[in-house]
Nucleic acid binder design. Structure first.
Length: 112
DNA sequence: TGCTTGACGATCA
DNA sequence: GTGATCGCCAAGC
């Protein structure tokens, strides 16, 4: 019955585990889940994550650190401000020193 | 039921 | 180094 591992639930779980002041990419989450080729699914899940106020989707950006999803936040500025509050510097909707703030789920969670 | 779209990523030209 | 195209899977119409 609950054999169906909701791809979305997995994404939400990983996003919630993102440490404060850190960000990750859709591809990183997809790779952690084992579907690196379905990075789009992560973004698709994020779209539904709007219902989950516990999902800091603002910490998820694309592979180069651009706030691609800011448009879907309702308030694009909000996404940037949230990240800046955590110490992340953003310029032109792009995270500076993205590699420095990048957080890889597989690196911290360490797949068993 | 079938085609299009979509918060991406990687590769090719 | 930049631009364009393909791939991937799921949901919407």
């Amino acid at each position: 019955m609950l054999k169906k591992a909701d791809f979305f639930s997995d994404v939400y779980d990983v996003v919630r585990l993102i440490p404060k002041g850190r960000v990750t990419s859709y591809g990183a989450i997809a790779a952690y889940l084992g579907s690196k080729q379905s990075s789009r699914m992560v973004g698709w899940a994020m779209n539904a994550s709007h219902k989950m106020s516990d999902v800091p989707s603002h910490r998820v950006v694309n592979r180069i650190g651009i706030l691609t999803g800011k448009n879907h936040f309702g308030n694009a500025m909000e996404m940037q401000e949230l990240l800046e509050k955590e110490g992340i510097v953003i310029q032109e909707d792009k995270i500076l020193n993205f590699k420095h703030f990048f957080w890889d789920p597989s690196q911290d969670l360490k797949i068993p």
